[in-house]
Amino acid sequence: MRVAIAGAGAVGRSIAQELVSDGHQVMLIERDRAHFDPNSVEQAEWVQADACELSSLEDAGMQLCDVVIAATGDDKVNLVVSLLAKTEFAVRRVIARVNDPTNEWLFTESWGVDVAVSTPRLLAAMVEESVTIGDVVRLMTLRQGQANLVEITLDEATPFAGRAVSELTLPRDAALVTILRGGRVIVPQPDDTLEGGDELLFVTTAAVEQDIKKALGY
């Protein structure tokens, strides 16, 4: 897979290093000479250019990329990069970094964004996930806000302890995708049983998040 990353600061370089370690082709696009350091991720292709300029992106070969990640520290730049990637180069998957949570509402399909990643939201979700029992914790927004990845931790007194997954009546537009139990990752099957302390991950629409909670007896 060929991936273009706009922004070669600490975040962009870290993403690039992970991707090249997994065998992907990575192109880092950076305008600021201070952040242009090909030695930091030697396996990546480095391009010194303004990622908001259409001609620069054409010269860099963005049209050949499967995924574009807008990872700069400026939300305006990330939105422009996302829009150009989707509308001018028809990139299949566009992921954008949200620096200021108040701007998150802008990072939608209208701006070419498939997935918006808000670091403050993720950190807050991790804190809530670690201390919240029986409540819905939103971990990530998917598909231009059409669905969310949410988590609910069952308490030890859950009425579902020992009951099969097939007995869980979920609302429409909600799916149980993973059960985290200790060090295990369980892909739920109908005959699998639930236990107190299980962390349940669901993909769902925002409209039925609270219905999932009710289905679990909370």
Rank of each mutant, 00 (worst) to 15 (best):
V3L: 08
G182R: 01
V81E: 06
A10K: 04
D211Y: 02
F202R: 01
I29N: 00
V67T: 15
T87Q: 15
H35K: 14
Q17R: 14
Q210S: 14
G112M: 09
L83A: 13
L83R: 12
V68H: 04
I179H: 02
P101S: 12
Q48T: 05
S166H: 02
C65W: 03
K214F: 10
P38S: 10
P190W: 00
S56E: 10
A16P: 03
A51F: 03
K213R: 15
L79D: 04
A60P: 01
E209W: 03
V150N: 01
E151C: 11
V98F: 12
V136C: 10
E128Y: 13
M1G: 08
L139Q: 10
I179R: 06
I133W: 09
Y218K: 11
V165T: 05
A125L: 10
I152T: 05
D155L: 06
T72P: 01
R2G: 05
V26L: 08
G112E: 11
V115N: 00
P120E: 07
L28C: 04
A4G: 11
A4W: 07
M27I: 06
S56F: 01
V11T: 13
D211P: 03
A60C: 09
D66W: 06
L142V: 11
K213H: 09
H24V: 08
A215H: 06
A10S: 10
H35C: 15
G134M: 11
V77F: 10
I179V: 10
W111N: 07
D198E: 00
V26S: 02
S82G: 05
E128G: 04
T204K: 07
A215R: 04
M62G: 04
T158Y: 01
A125I: 09
E129G: 15
M27H: 00
V117D: 01
Y218Q: 13
V80M: 15
D50T: 06
Y218E: 05
L201P: 08
R181P: 00
R13K: 15
L28Y: 04
V150S: 06
A44C: 10
D59G: 09
R97T: 02
T193R: 06
V81S: 04
P120K: 10
D211C: 07
I186N: 05
A164S: 13
I95K: 07
E209A: 14
V185R: 12
Q63R: 14
T72N: 04
P38Q: 08
L28N: 00
T102H: 11
K214G: 00
V208Q: 05
V203I: 15
T87F: 00
K213F: 08
G197D: 03
T102R: 10
V117I: 10
S82Y: 05
D192S: 06
V187A: 12
A10D: 12
L201N: 09
G145D: 02
K214H: 11
M1T: 02
T119W: 08
G23S: 09
P159Q: 02
C52R: 15
T169P: 00
E18A: 12
L83C: 13
T87D: 15
D135A: 14
L149V: 13
M1A: 09
V115L: 12
V11I: 15
D66C: 04
V136W: 01
Q43A: 15
F36L: 09
F160M: 14
N39W: 13
V77K: 00
V208W: 07
A157Y: 08
G197V: 06
D22M: 04
M1V: 05
G217S: 01
D135M: 12
L154M: 09
R184S: 13
L64G: 01
D66Q: 11
A215Q: 11
